[in-house]
């Protein structure tokens, strides 16, 4: 239903329908080029059969020893292409590459604690909360949801290399760390 292909530099000229969404940040050009230069095999986009960009995912590989993992930096889908499982497909592809190419132990991502919809979606995809990071999203200030809006859940999903499933835990929501403790 859509073309899954690597994200390319020229896609930056075409992602307005995705990036004009309030929750999607538009970074400086060097940000995107860093990802494309270092982790081109962890950055994908989905294009509609009619040639419009629908969404993209940017990821990287980081960490040392058993913390070596794939990280989802940004995943965003344009409003008109939501509810088509596009985010799920892109995440799967990133997990596939983190597992096969990078041989990571897990894949992780950050999500606002009040973003129930997204959390549910990630849980459906096999992610679970590993810890709560205080004031991770400091830029907005405390909103109507109080700390939930500022804090982030660090959510993780094990890859095949983590046979003993050591990178996840069941009581993640209660493990609270401050933003300084995470990279």
């Amino acid at each position: 239903m859509s073309v899954l292909r690597p994200f390319k530099a020229n896609d930056l000229f075409r992602f307005n329908n995705i990036n004009s969404d309030v929750w999607t940040e538009t970074y400086g050009i060097p940000f995107y080029l860093t990802y494309l230069q270092r982790w081109s095999d962890l950055c994908f986009t989905q294009e509609s059969p009619r040639g419009r960009l629908q969404g993209y995912i940017l990821g990287k590989a980081e960490g040392a020893q058993t913390e070596w993992h794939g990280h989802i930096t940004a995943v965003s889908v344009a409003p008109e292409y939501r509810r088509l499982s596009l985010a799920r497909n892109m995440c799967q592809r990133l997990e596939f590459a983190s597992d096969g190419i990078y041989k990571g132990y897990f894949v992780d991502l950050y999500v606002r604690c009040n973003n129930a919809l997204a959390i549910k979606m990630y849980e459906g995809m096999g992610y679970s909360v590993y810890r709560r990071v205080r004031e991770y999203y400091g830029n907005l200030g405390v909103g109507k949801d109080g700390r939930d809006e500022e804090d982030a859940f660090d959510m993780r999903k094990c890859l095949s290399r983590d046979v003993a499933q050591r990178s996840i835990r069941s009581n993640g929501r209660d493990m609270i760390v401050s933003a300084h403790d995470v990279s």
Partner: peptide, 24 residues
């Protein structure tokens, strides 16, 4: 900026990205 990243591509050995960057 772009040329700097093109340069990094050469250093790290990722030629497929380079024509993309040049076209960008």
């Amino acid at each position: 900026d772009v040329r700097f990243f093109t340069l990094l591509c050469f250093q790290d050995g990722y030629p497929p990205q380079i024509p993309e960057f040049v076209s960008f």
